[in-house]
């Protein structure tokens, strides 16, 4: 009997509306945020030739990138990281650099005009690094 006092039709409408707004709001906020993932973008002479979601790599693999002049880089991909394992360039700076996995990192092979860049598809935070002074 006393309970009836608290759950009148009008009250139910209010609580119902509140609940619906809350659920809708939550869904929209979650939906607007992308799921965090790390992507490697490989460009040759400015042209994007590979885009690899590093988070989805189960089995490590290697692939070869070749320039029109016949120069090459062999790239190895593992879960969450990427590197150059072999290259035809004289200085081998790209090979020596090893693995990269963070958003501010990139591998550059100037002689072969190859760039591997890491993009993080996650919301920026107060500690985001946009560039590297070197």
């Amino acid at each position: 009997m006393t309970k009836g006092k608290y759950f009148k039709t009008g009250d139910l409408i209010i609580y119902g509306t509140l609940l619906v707004i809350f659920i809708l709001g939550t869904v929209m906020v979650i939906g607007s945020k992308q799921i965090s993932s790390t992507t490697a973008v490989v460009t040759l002479d400015g042209e994007e030739i590979h885009r690899i979601n590093l988070g989805l790599v189960d089995e490590p693999y290697e692939f070869r990138v070749e320039t029109t002049q016949g120069d090459y880089n062999i790239i190895r991909v593992e879960n969450g990281r990427i590197r150059v394992v072999e290259a035809s360039c004289p200085d081998k700076i790209d090979v020596k650099q090893g693995w990269i996995s963070n958003a501010h990192q990139s591998i550059v092979c100037l002689p072969n005009r190859l760039v591997i860049r890491i993009i993080q598809d996650k919301p920026e935070t107060d500690s985001t690094i946009d560039g590297l002074a070197f």
């Binding site: 501010h104 920026e124 935070t125 107060d126 985001t128 946009d130 560039g131 590297l132 002074a133």
Partner: peptide
């Protein structure tokens, strides 16, 4: 950075 979150750019040294 116009991401609506940050006021300053982060530059690694």
């Amino acid at each position: 950075p116009l991401d609506g979150i940050r006021e300053r750019w982060g530059v690694g040294i």
